[in-house]
Design a protein around this nucleic acid. Structure first.
Lengths: 135, 135
DNA sequence: CTTGACCTTCCTATGATGGGAAGGTTTAGA
DNA sequence: TCTAAACCTTCCCATCATAGGAAGGTCAAG
């Protein structure tokens, strides 16, 4: 099948399929005489795998490692589990960072009258971050 | 003061100070005869404001809008509050996305034996995402 | 044989940041 | 007074994953 159909059935855009090939994430598929890429069901399967891994927040590099684990029939499930849990830890770190931002902003907003007067503790905080330490 | 000192006291790298100037986030400061940038306390104040806004997850563009609100002495605090709360909503959306990823991965990992056998439900899921719908 | 829907490669941009090269300036010390 | 170190300047490149678009070749249906 052509790249367009492979893109459609895998959910990965044709643009990204070419990109993934260029960086070596997927193998270079065979071509027709005229140069069109030809994809097999296995290729589409790999593309779906990639799309799913990306949707779980794995980087392209990490996805590459997951593909290697997938193809390595002799790997231990412990290796895969450790890899997944390491990513979970990174996600949790990121979540905690965003929650800290959100919490701070909500706190500031709760002290802002939100009326038509100009004085606003949110901007006051941004303008003088030493206030955070002393208050 | 020179850009190096301004960077040190504001917490924004000299590299970024030049970048912020190049994109118009901060004004072009005056120069010495030899071309060195010269920063005032007000300039440093603005840089601190920017650093704090960035640390709360505002984009450079949003930071620019915050700077405008800061300098607009007649704006209503309601405008600032609405702006902040919109950002909180975006943060919460992002948090929810990451939490969904984390939850899914934790769920998969909990079903993985994590031993030296090769079979692993994590990779099975990645390899066949139709399983998610049917199970 | 034409037209439209494909496909190809190549270049550009995004957002925020850092690295580094090549070269000019300033300052402190010998 | 000279020199070396520590500054500064601009300019280019890289990151990461993705998209847009141009210029041109191919294929299939009418």
């Amino acid at each position: 099948m052509n790249i367009g159909e492979a893109a459609r059935v895998s959910g990965v855009s044709a643009k990204m399929v070419r990109y993934y090939e260029s960086i070596g994430l997927i193998r270079s598929v065979t071509r027709t005489q005229s140069g069109y890429r030809v994809y097999s069901d296995d290729d589409v399967h790999a593309l779906r795998f990639i799309r799913r891994a990306r949707s779980l927040g794995f980087s392209v590099d990490e996805t590459s490692q997951l593909l290697a684990l997938w193809h390595d029939k002799s790997r231990a499930s412990a290796d895969v589990k450790a890899f997944a849990l390491k990513h979970v830890a990174e996600l949790e770190t990121k979540i905690a960072e965003l929650q800290a931002m959100s919490r701070t902003l909500q706190h500031l907003a709760s002290h802002c009258h939100g009326n038509d007067r100009p004085d606003c503790p949110i901007l006051d905080d941004l303008a003088d971050d030493s206030s955070r330490a002393s208050r």
